[in-house]
């Protein structure tokens, strides 16, 4: 059984978001890069299958050289090999471009299952994984909070309001993972794991290695792109509502409905 886990390197969720000089991306000068948490759950899920059914786990990622660090982290957790697509020409790719790169890279790998987070916490797009499934022509099960494999099928659970749905798909399949840290508790790399990870195979590939050209992905192939970014209006933390009890209750309800839009 071979599992490929798609991993994206993203800014830590505590990063203070500042808009960069170009006005359409964030300032990454003070960013601590981490594995996208949902991808980390996917790594954990894969490693559990590695433990239980002896799956071999490959980490696949794309990005600049710093991405190696995230792949090594996953290798330290216990994944077997890593592949990084590091090609300048992929810069500026939209989700479809990225999916094309990953799908092309998948072709060169053997896999029964592809795992990834249901979204990356930077762009919050919810689409690359599903697009990869579409391009690879395989079924997709989304938002998994548990995963099992048996008899050529993968079974997951997905939470919906007040219930859990159990779904299954025929292999090969792609599963995107949801849940939270407390659900998955991704393992903490041991020191021998970290040492071994330094020696595990990590292959770097260019677009040409995947049979793609710059025209297929990257800026040239972009269909949709961010043209500007803005920060939400500075929220005044510490704002205290005035008035008598009834007024406060009414005002809070109004604010939550109209300003925060959360009820």
């Amino acid at each position: 059984m071979n599992i490929v886990v798609l991993v994206k390197q993203v800014p830590d969720t505590e990063t203070k978001i500042k808009i960069g000089a170009d006005g359409k991306s964030i300032d990454t000068s003070e960013v601590k890069w981490i594995i996208n948490p949902y991808d980390e759950y996917a790594v954990e899920a894969a490693l559990r299958l590695q433990d239980s059914v002896g799956a071999s786990v490959t980490i696949l990622s794309m990005g600049p050289e710093r991405t190696v660090e995230s792949i090594r982290t996953a290798l330290a957790m216990g994944a077997d090999t890593g592949v990084l697509v590091d090609d300048q020409a992929t810069e500026g790719s939209d989700a479809l471009g990225k999916a094309k790169v990953l799908a092309a890279a998948l072709k060169s790998l053997e896999f029964d299952l592809v795992f990834c987070g249901h979204r990356a916490v930077d762009d919050d797009e919810n689409q690359v994984g599903i697009m990869v499934a579409e391009l690879a022509g395989i079924p997709h099960l989304g938002l998994a909070i548990s995963v099992e494999v048996a008899d050529g099928k993968v079974t997951i659970q997905r939470p919906i309001e007040g219930a859990k749905v159990t779904m299954e798909a025929t292999l090969p399949a792609l599963v995107t993972f949801g849940g939270a840290h407390a659900v998955w508790n991704p393992r903490y790399a041991s020191l021998p794991g970290i040492m071994k990870a330094k020696k595990k195979p990590l292959e770097t590939k260019m677009l040409a290695d995947l049979g793609l050209s710059a025209a297929d992905v990257g800026n040239e192939a972009v269909k949709v792109s961010v043209t500007s970014m803005e920060l939400p209006s500075e929220r005044q933390a510490g704002r205290v509502l005035e008035g008598d009890t009834a007024e406060k209750a009414r005002e809070l309800t109004r604010l939550l409905r109209e300003e925060a839009k959360v009820i």
């Binding site: 949709v224 792109s225 961010v226 970014m229």
Partner: peptide
């Protein structure tokens, strides 16, 4: 984006 810490305007 970024869990609501920023908004992006997208164009095709």
């Amino acid at each position: 984006m970024y869990a609501g810490k920023a908004f992006a305007w997208c164009e095709w």
